[in-house]
């Protein structure tokens, strides 16, 4: 603005401008920043601190115990098992839910009379919550009077005590989760399908492409951001899954469904070992951090230099 500014005045005005900008941006950023500070960053620091302390079950008599609890967590085979179970659970829920959602979306992405009814049915499980779907499946999976074993028995398939078998408990819990999530997956993928321009298909048809090649070369690439979104959200859901575990298996049998959230919950709120539970959470954080950085490194090579 001013014509002949000295170097010193220019630096001063730059500082003034920075202050002005900060003041202008603050009201937009502060709500989020304050909330993050209180409910994300402070808990992170506090958890690390709690991990170095032991208390009595009632949160009293706090004493410094050094790295003992971190050592306990790192050497605990139960904790390693919980990490493994969490990973498996993510795998068992994300892949089937995405695949089934893709199938249902493709099936109902047509102009047919009455198709809206089917789309609504396919997306209806988005209305079911974790408690609803757990209660629904608890009865279906009942080994004595459950309908699943009845149908399997009719079909000549050996029946199972689904939730009490160390082999089947995790797949069974995953199945209830998949059922609950296919509605969401179908909706998002349907939207993704509608985003793919119709002209692409038309020109492909002119080139005489088959249905399969159409799917491989147009639909799948067009859907890739959507599928990525569905699976990322699925992984987030999987890492936070608690209700279905609590209602269906309580982490058992033999820790087969003891996902990390449930393990931390149990340590903190059933065994009342807040320190040990915090140490678990911190170790989990470090693992997630390392994985994310690794992924970031890989992604940078892929995305930025292309």
């Amino acid at each position: 603005m001013s014509g002949e500014a000295t170097v010193g005045r220019r630096a001063g005005s730059r500082r003034a401008q920075a202050i002005r900008q900060t003041v202008a941006a603050a009201p937009f950023l502060l709500p989020s920043l304050v909330l993050f500070a209180v409910f994300v960053f402070y808990p992170l620091v506090r958890s690390i601190w709690l991990g170095f302390h032991a208390t009595d079950p009632f949160g009293r008599n706090e004493v410094w115990v050094g790295t003992a609890q971190y050592h306990d967590v790192l050497t605990s085979s139960d904790f390693r098992h919980s990490l493994l179970v969490t990973g498996q659970f993510a795998l068992y829920t994300v892949i089937p839910a995405t695949a089934i959602g893709l199938y249902l979306a493709l099936l109902s992405h047509r102009r047919l009379p009455g198709i809206v009814v089917f789309r609504t049915i396919f997306s209806s499980t988005v209305a079911t919550s974790v408690a609803v779907s757990s209660v629904v499946w608890l009865l279906m999976l009942n080994p004595s009077v459950g309908v699943l074993n009845y149908i399997l028995g009719k079909g000549g398939v050996p029946t199972e005590s689904w939730l009490t078998s160390p082999t089947w408990a995790l797949p069974a819990v995953a199945m209830t989760t998949v059922w609950m999530n296919i509605g969401f997956a179908t909706i998002v993928i349907l939207a993704g399908l509608q985003n793919i321009p119709e002209e692409l298909y038309e020109s492909a048809r002119v080139d005489g492409a088959g249905r399969w090649s159409e799917f491989l070369h147009i639909t799948l690439p067009g859907l890739s951001p959507t599928l990525l979104f569905v699976s990322v959200v699925g992984v987030i859901f999987a890492f936070e899954s608690f209700g279905q575990i609590q209602i269906l298996t309580q982490g058992g049998p033999l820790g087969a469904t003891n996902v990390i959230v449930y393990s931390i919950y149990r340590e903190a709120f059933l065994h009342y070992n807040i320190g040990l539970a915090s140490a678990q959470a911190v170790v989990l954080f470090v693992i997630v951090l390392l994985l994310t950085l690794l992924q970031f490194g890989v992604a940078r090579r892929w995305v930025f230099y292309r």
């Binding site: 920075a18 900008q21 900060t22 202008a24 941006a25 937009f28 950023l29 989020s32 993050f36 409910f39 994300v40 960053f41 402070y42 808990p43 992170l44 506090r46 958890s47 709690l50 890492f239 936070e240 990390i260 959230v261 931390i264 919950y265 903190a268 807040i274 539970a277 915090s278 959470a281 911190v282 989990l284 954080f285 997630v288 951090l289 994310t292």
Partner: peptide, 27 residues
């Protein structure tokens, strides 16, 4: 908007996604 530390602040926001929800339950 333009303001100092815009990019670091944005990464600070994104970093909260890396803090697993589990760690914040107890505190």
């Amino acid at each position: 908007m333009r303001f100092p530390f815009r990019t670091p602040l944005f990464f600070l926001f994104l970093s909260t996604m890396m803090v697993p929800w589990e760690i914040s339950i107890i505190p």
